[in-house]
């Protein structure tokens, strides 16, 4: 019984948790520096495997090069969206019009992804060989391990960036107080661009390691977007640590829903839990309520 719980719930829950933690982390990276969140973020994630798949299928490039193409595509898309749909509103994040402009960008990015394969779902060919790593009752597929490793690498990488580098401190400072940062000669516009690029790296890693689990389709991004956002909200938007905890909560919830109920109820369960959390602890586990300036 216990072994069943471990193999059916804990292990896949852990992997799903890593996936949603990665998605949530992308949102948090954007939020930390700009106090905005791109609703096109799901499409950054989708475009990385999509571009790699195009390079693989249409151009027959080697896998390593395809992966580079994927990373570059996510970066390019992120910079474009930042320039067109986020930067014009960087001085007034509390007016929330960027929700609409980034939604518009998301529509365009998603529809452009219909062009290469007519919107058909395709399997992602670039993955680790099928095989298992056994540890007692647990058995991880190599791809599972890759996802877990990616989550760990991203966590450590961002910890180093934000806590140990000058750039990281600037990225935090500019989100805390854009005007103050500007007075110190830091350009919030530039930092918005840098944070978009940083988020796109997280997005590319996410997209490339999860693509073998999901099929590659224009809808891949939107599937991850809402659940990932819910995960970020669980932990408290703007907290990397919170994003990881939120990701695991959501991951286990989804796995439990699939195992003990039906995966058709996923949205209902995740969303219901989010509503309960909003009523009990509005700002998430690690979030802080915004201060009111008078």
């Amino acid at each position: 019984m216990l072994a069943n719980v471990l193999t059916d719930l804990v292990l896949p829950g852990l992997v799903a948790g890593c996936i949603y933690a990665l998605v949530a982390t992308g949102f948090n990276v954007l939020d930390i520096s700009t106090r905005t969140v791109s609703f096109a973020y799901g499409d950054y994630i989708m475009w990385a495997p999509m571009a790699a798949l195009i390079a693989h299928t249409h151009l027959h490039w080697p896998a390593a090069l395809c992966i580079l193409v994927g990373v570059a595509a996510a970066g390019g898309v992120a910079l474009l969206v930042e320039y067109v749909a986020v930067r014009p509103f960087i001085d007034k994040p509390r007016e929330f019009v960027w929700i609409l402009s980034t939604l518009g960008a998301s529509v365009i990015l998603q529809r452009s992804a219909f062009l290469p394969f007519n919107g058909e779902q395709r399997a992602f060919p670039i993955s680790l060989p099928i095989g298992f790593f056994r540890l007692g009752v647990f058995s991880f597929s190599y791809q599972d391990l890759l996802v877990i490793a990616a989550a760990i690498v991203v966590a450590i990488g961002l910890y180093v960036v934000y806590r140990r580098t000058h750039l990281g401190r600037v990225l935090v400072a500019v989100g805390e107080d854009p005007d103050g940062a500007r007075a110190l000669g830091i350009s919030p516009e530039k930092m918005s661009q840098v944070s978009a690029l940083l988020a796109s790296v997280v997005a590319a890693i996410t997209g490339l390691v999860v693509a073998p689990f999901f099929l590659v389709s224009p809808h891949l991004g939107f599937q991850l977007l809402f659940i990932g956002f819910a995960a970020a909200t669980f932990g408290g938007l703007g907290s990397i640590r919170g994003g990881y905890i939120g990701g695991f909560v959501v991951g286990f919830l989804i796995q439990a829903t699939g195992v003990y109920g039906s995966s058709e109820w996923t949205y209902v369960v995740v969303f219901g839990t989010l509503l309960v959390l909003y009523s009990v602890r509005p700002w998430g586990i690690y979030g802080v309520p915004p201060a009111r300036a008078v």
Partner: peptide, 11 residues
Amino acid sequence: FLYGAFLILTV
């Protein structure tokens, strides 16, 4: 595409 562009241009 037009709808997405319209969203961005409007705001």
